[in-house]
């Protein structure tokens, strides 16, 4: 928790946080103004949520790239490692810190929600599920970013790694269309890619529907990447 708190306060003093906020608000503002906030449209955040992944997949890596990489590069990892905290505490602290910042980003979209509330009547259940979906997606994205950051002391490499991975998760639904042929194996790959796509699982949330399969997807992939990060942290100890 201490780590998380320090992480968040530190983030707020670093320029990258504001660049991330700027990009996020700009992207969300464009999507919102273009696709959601149109007179006569349904008052729902749905499309904002559906499209958010195309922005978040490059914004989140910016946010997470420094989490571990910077500690490695500056040598502060030595200080952290020799403090009486476990790797798990460290990981959890970093994760919570990043998640907290992500939730602050989400909090910024209250601007958009407020506009919707002024000019229409959004459905509260749906809005809740939209935010839940965004938070879960953010959780998964942050976990991926955290993993890559723990792998290298080079922030750029970490950012690129998570960008590619998140890009895959973001676009695999669309990419799956490109898969040629109709043999069994291709079909299998096709459906696997559809399953892996964030969009597949985000859609129900943005509709206002909770489904355990989507919940487990986001939680599961977050768990996988967090666990992999944990392994990386542990193995660093063993080199």
């Amino acid at each position: 928790m201490t780590i998380a708190k320090r992480e968040v306060t530190s983030l707020f003093f670093s320029p990258i946080a504001y660049i991330v906020m700027f990009l996020f608000l700009l992207y969300m503002g464009l999507v919102f103004a273009g696709l959601v906030f149109v007179p006569g449209q349904l008052t729902e955040l749905r499309r904002l949520v559906d499209f958010s992944r195309f922005g978040l997949f490059f914004i989140v890596p910016l946010m997470t790239m420094s989490l571990f990489s910077d500690e490695y590069r500056s040598g502060r990892i030595e200080m952290l490692r020799t403090s009486p905290i476990t790797e798990f505490d460290l990981l959890l602290g970093k994760f919570i810190g990043a998640m907290f910042f992500f939730l602050i980003l989400l909090g910024l979209t209250l601007i958009h929600l407020t506009l919707l509330m002024i000019f229409g009547h959004p459905d509260y259940g749906q809005t809740f599920s939209c935010y839940l979906g965004l938070a879960l997606m953010g959780m998964m994205f942050v976990s991926v970013g955290l993993f890559y950051s723990s792998c290298t002391q080079n922030q750029i490499v970490a950012a690129l790694g998570s960008l590619l991975t998140l890009g895959f998760f973001t676009f695999s639904g669309g990419l799956s269309e490109l898969i040629p042929g109709s043999t069994k194996i291709f079909e299998w790959i096709h459906s696997a890619m559809i399953y892996l796509s964030v969009g597949t699982h985000l859609e129900d949330f943005s509709k206002g529907v909770l489904d355990t399969s989507h919940l487990s997807y986001f939680l599961g992939f977050s768990a996988i990447f967090l666990f992999m990060t944990y392994l990386v942290l542990e193995s660093r100890k063993w080199r």
């Binding site: 320090r6 530190s10 003093f13 500056s74 502060r76 030595e78 200080m79 020799t82 476990t86």
Partner: peptide, 21 residues
Amino acid sequence: SLDVRKKIGYLPESTPLYTEM
């Protein structure tokens, strides 16, 4: 190791600190 870390005060060679704090 956790107990050790509690008992030790360590000044690393390169004195890494959070520069923004």
